[in-house]
Design a protein around this nucleic acid. Structure first.
Lengths: 229, 229, 229, 229
DNA sequence: CATGAATGAGCTTTCATTCAT
DNA sequence: AATGAATGAAAGCTCATTCAT
C-alpha cells in the first residue's frame, strides 16, 4: 500500500521544499536588486537573473512585482521586530535590556544592509510616505504599525520600571526610533563596520541622558534633583 | 535713451520674470505631484496638467524629469537649511537658540508637508539610499551634505559654548537630525497640526536631557558629577 | 486681432485634419492586418508598421487594441448598412428595389473584402459568438442589432407592398441575411470577381421563388393557388 | 494461453480504453472552454482544469493546442455531416428527405451548441476566414470542403429527381447552407428551444418556394408555368 | 517660446510548451 | 503515463523625450 500513500505525502513534501527554496531565492534576489536599484528601477528580469531562474518562475510564486516587495518586507520586518523586542534572556535593569535590544537591532541592520536600504526606500520607517503608500498601500501601514507598536511597548516597559521620565510615551518612542534609525542610516552611509557594542552603548547613553552637559547652568532637571536631596 | 535701448534691458527683464513664473509654477506642481505619487509614479503630463501648461513647456525649462526633482530639492532645501541655521536675532543661551532653530524647522516642515514627503521619498535625509542615489546620483549626496554640515555647525556651536557634552560631534549631530526627522515624520503621519512651540520645547528637552528619569539609580553622569565636586 | 483668433480656429483645424488622417490610416491598416491575421494574431506593431507610424501613436488615438477593432467595425458597418438600406433613387417594384440593395451590398463586400473577413472573424454576423462577445462585448450586440434591424425593415417593406408571403418577418429577414452572407462568403472564398449584377439577380430570384422546381408535383403553394381559381 | 499471453492483448486494450477516456475528456472540456472563451482566449490550463487533469496530460495526447481544436472539429464535424447526409431510412419524396436531413442537423446544432459556437468562431462555415486559416491552416479547408461536398451531394440528388430547379448546383448548395446556418445561429442567439420540427418545415418551405408571394404580379416562373399548361 | 501629438525603447505580465519527478 | 512547476518568447501598453507648428 505504501507507494501510493507515500507519494501523497513524500511528493508534496519535496514539492513544498522546492517551492520554499525558490521563494526564498526570489526574495533574496529581490532584497539585493531592490537595494541596488530601488523598487521602480528593479526589473523582474533583474531579480530572476540574480536568482538564476526564469522570469515566469517569479510569477509562479508571486502574482505581481509588488507582492515580491511586500513578502520581502513582511519576512524581514518580522525578524527585525523580533530583534527589537526584549528577550527572556535579556538582563534586567532596563538600561541593560534596552542596550541589548538596540545592539541586536543594529546587528540586524548591519547584516541586512540591503533590507534596510529597501525599507528606507519604501518609506517603511515613515508611514504615509508617497512611494510607500503607492506601492504598498494599506499593507505598508500595517508593517509600520507593527514596528511602532514594538517600540512603544519597549518604552512603556521603561516607564513602568521607572527608568524613563514619566511622560507621554509616544514622543519617547518616536525619539528612540529616530535614534536607532539615525544610527542605522549612518552605518549604511559610512559603509564602515563600526564597533556595534560601543555604538549601542552610546545610543543608550544619549537616549537616557541626552546630549546636554550634565552640569551646565540652568539645567532644568538639576533643580529638581536639588529638591530631592 | 531711445525706446530701443530701454527695450534691450526691459524686455529681458520681463522675459526673466515670465521665465521664473513658469519655472516656479512647474516646481510647485512637481512638489505636489511628487508628494502624491512619488517620483516614479509622477508623469511629466501630471506635472504639466497641475501647472496648467503643456508637457513641452516643462522641457523648455528643464532638460529631464530628474532635473525638476533636483531643482525642487535644491530650492526647498536651501530654505530648510536657512531655517535650521541660527539667525542673528536668535536669543543667546544655546538652549534657546536651539529651540528657535528647531521651531523654525518644524514650522517649515508643517508648511511644506509636500516637500517633506518628497524629501523622504527621495531618501534626501538618508544619503546613499537606493532610489535617491539612482535618481539624484552625486547631487543627492551634495544635498545631504549641506544639511548635515548645517546640523554639525549647530552642534559644534553648542559644544563650544559648553552647552553640549564634550564628545564626538558626529553622533551628536546625527542624534539631533534623527530627533527632528522623527518629529517631522510624526507630524506628516498624524495629519494633525500640533502646538509647534511645545513640540520644539519637548525636542530640546529630550535632546539635552534625554529620556531617562533624572533621579534614577546608577545614572552614569551622576557619578561623573560626583567626581567634579 | 487676427493672429490669435486665427490660431484658435486655424490651428485646431489643421490639428483635427491631421488627427483624422492618422485615425483613418490606423483603421485602414487595421482592416488589412486584422483580415490577414485575425484580431488575436494581429500585433499593434503590425498595424503601426502598415500605417507607417509608431506604436505609441496608435495609443494616442485608441485606448486599447479592442477599441481599434470596434471603431473599424463601427465605421464600416455604418457604410454597409447604408448600402443595404433602400435609397430614394431605387426603382419601385419591391423586387427591383431588393435587387438594388443586394447589388450595393455585394459591391461593398467585393470592395471591402478585408472588412468582410474581419466581420466574419469577429462573428459580427452572428451575435453572441465566442470571440465576438469576448472582444467586443455588448458593443458587438449593438453592431449586430443595427444590421438585423435594417434587414428586418427591408423585409417589412416587402410584406407591406405584398411582395412577400404574409408570415413572421423574422425568419424572412434571417433567410435574406443568410443568402447575402452565403454569397459574400462565397466571393471571399473563390477569390474571384464574378458578375455581381447576375449574382444579385440570382439571389433575388432564389429568395423570392425558392430553389424548388415550379411545376414539381405536390408543391404546397400550388394548392393554395387552386383555391384561388 | 498463459496469463502472460492474455496480458499482451488484454493490457493494450485497457490502455487504449484509458487513452480514449482521457482523449474524450479533453475534447469535451475543450468544446466547452473554446465555446466560452474562443480559441485564443482559452488556455490549456482552463481545458485541463475542466477535464480535471494536469496540463502535461493534455500534451501527452495532443502535440499542440491547435491539434486539440482540430481533433474536436474533426470528430464533431463528422457527426454533423452524418446528420446532414440522407439516411437509408429517410422517406423518399425529396422534400421529405430534405426535411429529415435539416431536422437532424438542427437537432445536432441544438444539442451541440458549444460545438456550433466553436465552429462559427473558427470560421468553419466560411473557408478562408482569417483566424480559421491561421489556426487551422489547410486542415480548415479540408473540414469545410467535406461539409460543402455533403451539401452539394444533397442538392444534386434534388436536381436528379427533379425537385430542384435545373441550374448550377453551387448556388443552390450555397443557399441551402446559408439557410441552415442562419437558422442555427438564430437558435444560438435566442438561447431559446424552438419547435425544431416546425423550424425544419419552415426552412424547407422557404428553400423550395422562396419568400415571395406566390400570386404576386409579374412573377417570372408563373409565366413559365403558363407556358407549360 | 508654448504647444501637444509622434515616437519607440522598455517594462510587466501571460501562457504554450517542456521536463524532472 | 500523469503531474505541475519551470521556462522564456512574445505582446500590450506606458511614458520620457522630441519636434513640427
Amino acid at each position: 500500500m505504501s507507494s501510493s500513500s507515500e507519494r501523497r505525502t513524500a511528493l508534496p513534501r519535496r514539492r513544498d521544499e522546492a517551492k520554499a527554496l525558490f521563494r526564498n531565492a526570489i526574495l533574496d534576489a529581490a532584497e539585493h536588486v531592490f537595494a541596488q536599484q530601488g523598487f521602480h528601477g528593479a526589473r523582474i528580469q533583474d531579480i530572476a537573473d540574480h536568482a538564476r531562474i526564469a522570469v515566469g518562475t517569479v510569477y509562479n510564486h508571486f502574482e505581481q512585482k509588488e507582492d515580491v516587495l511586500h513578502a520581502l518586507l513582511e519576512v524581514r520586518l518580522e525578524e527585525m521586530i523580533g530583534n527589537l523586542r526584549p528577550q527572556p534572556t535579556d538582563p534586567e535593569p532596563f538600561e541593560q535590556k534596552l542596550r541589548c535590544c538596540i545592539l541586536r537591532t543594529l546587528r540586524f541592520a548591519e547584516e541586512h544592509r540591503d533590507f534596510h536600504q529597501v525599507a528606507l526606500d519604501c518609506g517603511l520607517f515613515a508611514k504615509g510616505t508617497a512611494s510607500a503608500s503607492n506601492i504598498l498601500k494599506e499593507k505598508a501601514v500595517a508593517h509600520f504599525e507593527k514596528l511602532r507598536a514594538t517600540t512603544l511597548a519597549l518604552v512603556n516597559e521603561g516607564l513602568k520600571c521607572g527608568a524613563l521620565r514619566p511622560m507621554d510615551p509616544v514622543p519617547l518612542a518616536r525619539m528612540l526610533g529616530g535614534l536607532i534609525r539615525s544610527s542605522s542610516i549612518g552605518m549604511l552611509m559610512e559603509q564602515s563596520h563600526p564597533d556595534l557594542e560601543a555604538e549601542a552603548s552610546l545610543l543608550v547613553d544619549l537616549y537616557l541622558n541626552g546630549a546636554g552637559r550634565a552640569d551646565r547652568p540652568g539645567r532644568p532637571r538639576d533643580e529638581s534633583d536639588l529638591g530631592e536631596r
